[in-house]
Each structure stands twice: as C-alpha cells, then as structure tokens.
Nucleic acid binder design. Structure first.
Ligand code: FES
Ligand code: FES
Lengths: 144, 144
DNA sequence: TCCGAAATATGACAAAAGTCATCTTTTGCT
DNA sequence: AGCAAAAGATGACTTTTGTCATATTTCGGA
C-alpha cells in the first residue's frame, strides 16, 4: 500500500510527536531503535520531512528532532504520504491506465474511486495529535 | 496500490474474457497491443495465471489464450491480485509492523482495517464477467 | 513429414526501492 | 579555541521490480 519509506516516516514522526509532547527532543538513533527501522534510511526520510517543514531539527549537542503542538494538530497522514510517496495513490488508476478519468474510465473505475475516497478521507482525518493518544496510553504500538 | 504485473494481468485477463465471450481465442501480441503493455512481460504474467488455472492456453497454430464462461463468473479480482501480488495487501499492517494484530495494533490499525475490508470486499465482488460488460458496451476501457 | 505459428522457458539487462557507510557541517560546552 | 555530539549530504551497494531478447516446445496444416 505505502512504501517502506512512508511507513518508517509515519512511525518516526509519531515517535517524535510523543516525545515532543512530553517536552523532549529525540535523536535519530533513538528513533530508529524505538520504531525498529534502519538508522540511515530513517534519517534520510526525516530530512525530507524537515524540508517539508513538518518537523524541525536542531544540530549539535542536545540537538535532535522535535515537532510543535501546532504541527501535530494540523499535520495529517495524507500530508505525509503525499510528501514521501507522492500524490499517485490518491489520483492514479487502479488498473494502471495513464490517467484516471471519468471520461474514459477503466472497468474498475467507479468502485475503485469509492475505496480510494475512503482511504483519502481516513488519511485526511488522521492527525498526528490524535494518533499519538493511543501510543501514550500504551494501547497502540510503533513496533511489535 | 497494485504492482504493474497485477495491473497488466487484470487488463490482459479482461481482454481475453471479452474475446472468449465472443468465441475467439486471442494471441499474446494481440493482447499486448490492445491493453498497451509490454509483450514479454505480459506473457510471463499470463503464464502465472495459466498455472493457477484461471485461464487456459493452446499452443501451435490458431492457438492462444481463452477463458471459460464458468471461470469468468467465478474468478474475482481478489483471486487475481492474490495470485500475482500475494496476500500481503489483504493482511499486512498499514504502517509496516511485522504483523497486523488486534492484540498489538499500530495507531492506524482500526481505521486502516476498515478501509482494507472495503477494498477486499470490492475486489471479491468484482468478477471478470461483470467487469467485461462495460467493455463490451464500450463504456469502459482497457487502455486510453 | 516438414513448416510455421503459437505458448513456454530462460536469462540478460535496466530501473527503482531499500540499505549501509562515510564524510561534512553546525553548535553547545569546556 | 578546540572537542564532541548531533543533523545533513553523498555515494556505493543490494534487492526487487520491470523490461527485453532468445531459444525451446508444441501442434495444426499443407
Ligand atoms: S480510470 Fe481506472 S480507476 Fe479511474
Ligand atoms: S497493526 Fe497496523 S494495520 Fe493492523
């Protein structure tokens, strides 16, 4: 469904959000350990998200990643997926036609369109703030 | 969402089904032309589907691929996706956790589970027979 | 029986995704 | 000023996915 980069990116961001919520900055090695992901790859993805201004980074001693309460509230999974995997999943044809167009629909178009809308809605209504609540409560997990 | 192999496979099967419905066998070069796909790659995928007994092939002059009315009725997109891409899309965690388990759910689990079920239902209720109706009517397309 | 048409099998190759390692830059602290 | 800790940048490498090409097998028909 999503790329590995996207999966790691979301999990990393959620972990940063949990820590930032508790007032702590977090370093990449800690993130990778806590979400069980490759360190360097995770770093690359976080860089993308820093550029996209979703998360902020601080270099040097006692540096690390952090995310503001404001960003937690306004950033949705839809944003993150679009940044990392691009908009294709929200727009492209399920059967691989060049464009997904009501004018020349593929045989699956109308049904697929529904499911895709559900997915989109789900991602658009999932903010980081909401998602970390379960993690803080210990009822949901970022690794197994 | 689906791999290219899967997209080509579905489109190829639908084209075979349309032709078989009209009593014609169809050769690989014709399929590739009509669904706008690479010939050799499409051949490989069709071989997989022949092994899985979804479609039948006949070698030699006037050979080609064909699919019975019975198979068109009973074969769903869910079957095809599972044959080509495997069962991961129906079962794996949206955030890449090793297993998708109610016991140790990821923060997205419950919402994701819903969407995934919708997708599954959609694919399970889409038989080849139903899907080719639009193609025969000219209202849906296998290439643009 | 021989020829040609077709699927099948195999492997080389290219592109993309994912992983790993190394070096550079920035910055707080002593 | 110098050290060490951290992100940032870069590139090599591996694996997976997708593509292309070539040989082999099967079989109908002249
Ligand atoms: S045209 Fe295929 S999903 Fe819209
Ligand atoms: S555990 Fe992540 S989707 Fe079920």
């Amino acid at each position: 469904m999503f790329s590995k980069a996207c999966e790691y990116g979301i999990r990393a961001l959620l972990y940063v959000a949990v820590k930032s919520h508790g007032g702590e900055r977090v370093i990449i090695s800690d993130i990778a350990k806590e979400i069980d992901s490759p360190v360097s790859f995770t770093a690359k993805i976080l860089q993308q998200l820093v550029k996209a201004a979703v998360v902020t980074s601080v270099k040097g001693p006692h540096g690390g990643f952090e995310i503001t309460d404001e960003k937690m509230k306004t950033t949705t999974l839809a944003h993150i997926v679009e940044i990392i995997d691009g908009p294709a999943i929200f727009r492209s044809c399920g059967l691989g036609l060049g464009v997904c167009d009501e004018g020349t629909p593929c045989p699956l178009h109308f049904k697929y369109h529904n499911v895709r809308s559900e997915l989109k809605k789900m991602l658009e209504t999932s903010t980081l703030e909401k998602l970390i609540q379960g993690v803080e409560r210990g009822s949901t997990h970022l690794k197994l």
